[in-house]
Design a protein around this nucleic acid. Structure first.
Lengths: 236, 236
DNA sequence: TGTACATCAGTGAACGCGCGTTCACTGATGTAC
DNA sequence: TGTACATCAGTGAACGCGCGTTCACTGATGTAC
């Protein structure tokens, strides 16, 4: 009866089970890690026979890919929401801090999905092209707010960088695609700050601050304040 | 005949085979990752029967631990050597750049050992206490050169930080143990720079700069210059 | 120096296990006339 | 509205595989007297 196949009972059941499989697989990530993600174990948890999962995902790697895409989308959505919720859209410092805090919060709430995409690559798994666009989503949020900050005059653009021609053309491409009007030096500062953000989150999550820093929140807050300063005021 | 058991033929053979097992296991890390490291596969590669490996490592996890300890030791030794080779021991900027470059070089030359210790934790494996001291070795190099830089008056110590009491006491412990005379703000800058260093290496190694930055060397060089500046001159 | 004994490396078979994937099948759900 | 047919979800058995770990064993290497 239903013309649109997406609204039929069968289609709805299919969508629901697809989600249930992903949800269970996500839980398994926590127990065993990506490398040990097992279709059979997921099926068992759902009360299905293992071969039934193949109706939904043609292979284990496709399931992994779906989880990776979901993770990238989730962290991107978290950042988008946090930045969009900023009361003063023109205040780039505030938006940056919200952005960074949202990414960290998501990572702390979903440590295994964070590790899945920002930790060591899964051995034997080659990320397919389908993961590229979702991977960029969260970075677009950052580049967008940088561009806004420059446009609003909140970012010092006097800074200069000495670097290779290759880097300059990389930065030019970034500018054309996602950060109109942002000069090379500001983009470079952004890149450095971006790796710093994920470096700090990874260190915290992977235990490298264990026994060294007891107040991770405070350290991260310090990072956000210092990087905001560095982004807007430059090195001097 | 030999009184010292470490010099007997049997003991030497044992030490050699222990090393051979670790070397083969290290190669396997590259192909399959830590989670899939298999005692059987290692034994096969060495032409031994799998049960023979148990004469050398009582379990798969003990072998993993040995690899982790070796990796921490290797990166620490690389940093120590690079810093010690600096012609001007008093030049903290130069030493920092050598230190950072050495860590990155080691990581690029040994990507899977880097991932083993700085990537996502191996699922189901709990790092034993024996890994704690080696893990700190590379950080001691950094803290040492910071302390030297402060003592030599090369580091701006006017900077102040606002942070929690917990962080202040963490920093005080760091100072007492490994960085005498280094004020809180400088230690905090050091921590931020430290996470930035590993964040950049991880991003590069784990493919997050792929398609974005084509000249990783130049970006890293920029990072070293900017962080050296930040370490010594502070935020302003 | 020579012999009896203890130590240790390595063997090969076996244990029980879980994995990804394929395949022919049964029923239930949808579709076309 | 009713019937014949096509589509699809899920079943259960089977494939071949590799894993960690244990165990009784054989021989070679070292040690004590």
């Amino acid at each position: 009866m239903p013309r649109d196949p997406a609204t039929g009972a069968r289609a709805r059941a299919r969508a629901e089970l697809t989600d249930a499989i992903k949800a269970t697989a996500r839980q398994h990530l926590a127990d065993a890690g990506a490398a040990a993600l097992s279709l059979r174990a997921v099926a068992r948890d759902l009360g299905m026979v293992s071969s039934a999962v193949y109706r939904y995902f043609p292979s284990r790697d496709e399931l992994l890919t779906a989880l990776i895409v979901d993770a990238y989308d989730a962290v991107g959505a978290a950042a988008e929401a946090a930045v969009a919720a900023a009361p003063e859209p023109a205040d780039v410092v505030d938006r940056w801090r919200r952005c960074g805090a949202a990414i960290r919060s998501w990572a702390l709430a979903n440590p295994h999905e964070y590790a899945l995409v920002y930790g060591s690559p899964v051995p034997g798994y080659a990320a397919p092209a389908a993961t590229i666009a979702p991977a960029g989503r969260v970075a677009l949020v950052f580049l967008g707010l940088l561009a806004d900050g420059v446009a609003a005059g909140q970012v010092d653009v006097e800074d200069r960088i000495e670097t290779s021609r290759a880097i300059r053309s990389d930065l030019a491409r970034l500018r054309d695609e996602a950060a109109p009007g942002v000069p090379d030096a500001v983009l470079a500062r952004g890149l450095l700050v971006w790796t710093q953000l994920f470096g700090a989150i990874s260190f915290e999550l992977f235990g490298h601050l264990h026994g060294v820093i007891s107040d991770d929140d405070a350290l991260f807050d310090l990072l956000l304040r210092r990087t905001a300063d560095y982004l807007t005021r430059g090195p001097r």
